[in-house]
Nucleic acid binder design. Structure first.
Lengths: 261, 261
DNA sequence: CGACCGATTGACACAGCTCAAATGAAGTGG
DNA sequence: CCACTTCATTTGAGCTGTGTCAATCGGTCG
């Protein structure tokens, strides 16, 4: 994966479904974009607003969230570099969730007009974006299942597994180790538990020897056990064979390099 | 809404985002379709399979579901007439959930080839389908929030409100009353609770005078109270003004016509 | 009539919540 | 370089919503 250009991770993901024509790659490369930095916890878009551009994550993490009962926060998804956080604003008038930066983050805003234009002109790109949207929906279904039918430690294990896979797929996790600037409260808000209980779960995962967890740094020490505990299978993420064959998952490479770093 | 043709409810929904050209309506009307009947609980599509057509609900209900821990079932969505249950199979190779009939149901299978064709030819139809897909995603986000941050009675109240609105939007609910062939176990599987507890919650809703509940027949007796209890707002369903202005919600018409039918 | 399925009920157990406080780490300003 | 603040993590002690197990009841259908 070519890294270094703003759209490189997006392009990499879009080509999961098949190589794009030079012209289509060019279309992506030429998308007008406004790069903006956000501080930790800064709001990128507010529920109810009607943005005129979409938000591509370049660096760091965003999360979408909603409130229940007026004050109970639920994180509905984590967005990692290469993800477009709110493609739906292209066709839905108002945003049904808020969007915030988990830690410091860099995003690019892509005007709706330009995106609609390439979706109309290139069936291949339209297909690639459809695919992105549908993968996001599959993740939502998995989260519904996670929240509805797994207990706290399983939920946490599952979310950690999911992030590990999604991050390694865009080269942001190495050796089952990744950095993410979340707090245990963020974790709790994504797993539908309280932060107090999230803390106890994290401690239990440490005690079981499944993960090292320095809050901002997560290292999975026993992938197979964690995936089993979290009832995790990466099927729903629809990874292409080329990505699945990368090492790091299934602990194929857990022994090749120094597990301490 | 014109009723009577297989695609009428779909067309009605597609036009929520704006009137379609006669040619586009024609394209929908001419979609090749295979109509099939399913018995209650019969499987329409199995997780892991790779269908070559999409499933349009014509009558009755479908539900998508996944298993956690091998045996705990979670319903991830209810599909009502006019919904396409698995549009994502157009672009994702394998189904990440199973699809079953809640009660007896009639569905139409639409070949991928025909659907891809109209998505490529008509930007307006593509936009309408994008909109459908994004509304589905918004529902998933709401479900994530429901499961993660509301307690049992709130979850049930919320799901009932959602179904009432979605059904009345396609003329399948009158006077806040609708028929749905679910069991309390189905309800439990959608709300992430056990069937025993679902029963207690239903009894409590009855006792509070919020709903009449004859299992297959749900009548909301106090919409405002139920919506408040379920922390429900229909914003995420992205109803067009024309539909929101219909009576029945907000109990505007709770008295105008016969509540028995 | 018997079989089966869904609704209902009761007794009890426990996962996770609430409330409250202590500890620790990181930054800020003097 | 040290007080001071702030925020995240951690711990403890009850409390409660929901699960589990098991039985009963009622309706439907062959």
């Amino acid at each position: 994966m070519e890294i270094g250009r703003p759209y490189s991770r997006l392009l990499y993901r879009l080509e999961w479904s098949g190589v794009l024509s030079p012209q289509d790659r060019q279309r992506i490369a030429e998308l007008p974009l406004t790069v903006t930095n956000f501080a930790a916890n800064q709001e990128v878009a507010r529920q109810g607003s009607a943005p005129s551009s979409c938000t591509l994550v370049l660096g760091g993490f965003l999360y979408s969230h909603k409130l229940a009962r007026g004050s109970r926060r639920q994180i509905t998804s984590f967005l990692v570099p290469g993800n477009i956080a709110d493609l739906h604003t292209l066709y839905l008038s108002s945003l049904d969730h808020s969007l915030s930066a988990l830690g410091p983050a860099v995003v690019a805003f892509l005007p709706h007009t330009a995106l609609r234009d390439i979706l109309e002109r290139s069936p291949a790109l339209a297909g690639a974006f459809w695919r992105e949207a549908f993968i996001e929906a599959a993740i939502f279904r998995e989260w519904v299942t996670n929240l509805g039918r797994r207990d706290a430690i399983e939920r946490v294990a599952h979310v950690v597994c999911e992030l590990a896979v999604r991050l390694q797929a865009v080269d942001l996790a190495r050796n089952l180790c990744f950095s993410i600037p979340w707090t245990q409260t963020d974790l709790a808000n994504s797993c539908g538990i309280t932060s107090v209980h999230a803390n106890r779960v994290v401690q239990e995962l440490r005690r079981l020897g499944l993960v090292d967890w320095d809050s901002k740094q997560v290292r999975i020490r026993d992938w197979n056990a964690l995936a089993k505990l979290g009832d995790f299978s990466d099927d729903y993420l629809q990874l292409p064979a080329a990505v699945k064959d990368k090492p790091l998952l299934g602990q194929k490479v857990a022994s090749t390099s120094d597990p301490k770093h």
